[in-house]
Simulated scan of single mutants.
Amino acid sequence: MSAAPTSQVTRGVALMILAIFLFTSMDATAKGLIERYPAPQVIWVRFAGQLTLVLLILRHRLGPVLRTRFPVLHFWRSASQFGATTFFFLSLPYVGLAEATAIADLNPVLITLGAALFLGERLGPRRIAGVIVALIGALVVIRPGAGVFTWWALLPLCCALSYATSALLTRRIGAQESVWASMIYAALFGSIVAGAALPFVWQPVATEDLWKFGLIACLGTGAQLCIIRSFSITEAGIVAPFAYLGIVFATCWGAVLYGQWPDRWTVIGALVIVGAGLYVWHRETRALSARPEITGSDAV
């Protein structure tokens, strides 16, 4: 697997940051809705909305997009993405937004290790250092033993496992297929599975909440598009540490929307996380600029 040029790494990192911002915005909106509506209903809107938007965008190009060489990989990728969304949304009534995001953001460790084990990406010292430092920052935010780790905390942990699986499968498919194939198969899977529960849980939607359901669909679609593209053009080990920015974004959303202001340790941990991500990006781009012909097996 060839290493990405510097500009491609920068685009991949930028897309990952945008995806995490959109995902946390979606999660913050969903937290308010799940307090008033059943979780399966909110989850169904997230995926059904994405399906509708993708169908509108593709229109007459739907046939070629649906013809895939990786039906099994698409199935498991769709299932893991659905699992990540479901586990996280189910945790929101019981775990704070910033805390749930911090636990779920253990996924960069899993992605980096999985990329080395299953995709042949080298687990170099700089990537290891970036992941470990960012993990330390995450632990500073959630402070084990301070009441965050309850049985409900297993839900965002399952989200981390599901998200890592989805990311690795996305990287495996990579640029071999259109990004829209992954978008439509994931949306179709989520719409069908979550839709099966609707007859048993559906509640009428208040008029003032319609725009929030629509916002979830748009944010989820945009985030998924960005993250698929990021993992398709850049090695997973490079962009994975930037997922820790989700803790920073979620903390800000919690403060603005729900009055959950971060304390001193949350701010310190967030700064550590941002610094670790910037370190990985800086070292990777410097290495690629200095050795543009390097192959993926020799990358740091």
Rank of each mutant, 00 (worst) to 15 (best):
V300P: 01
R46S: 09
I57P: 10
Y258N: 02
A160Q: 07
L119T: 08
R171M: 01
M26G: 01
A4V: 06
S289V: 08
Q41D: 03
L62D: 06
V45T: 13
A84V: 04
V148H: 05
Y185Q: 00
A250K: 02
C158K: 01
P156V: 02
A84Y: 04
L56A: 12
E121N: 04
W152G: 01
I268H: 03
R291S: 12
T85M: 14
L154K: 05
L271I: 13
V141W: 09
L15T: 08
P199Y: 10
S289A: 15
F82T: 12
Q81A: 02
E99D: 15
L53I: 15
P144A: 05
L257Q: 09
V140A: 00
G190P: 07
P241I: 05
A138N: 06
T165I: 07
G114W: 05
K212M: 14
F118R: 07
A167R: 07
T101Q: 14
A243L: 10
V141P: 05
G145V: 05
L188D: 06
A255D: 11
W180N: 05
A104M: 14
T29G: 08
G174K: 01
M1C: 04
Y258V: 07
A4T: 11
P262N: 11
G145N: 01
V54N: 00
L169T: 09
A243Y: 12
R122Y: 11
Q260F: 09
V274L: 13
A299M: 11
I173F: 09
A236R: 00
L168C: 08
R291M: 10
T251Q: 10
G63T: 14
R36E: 15
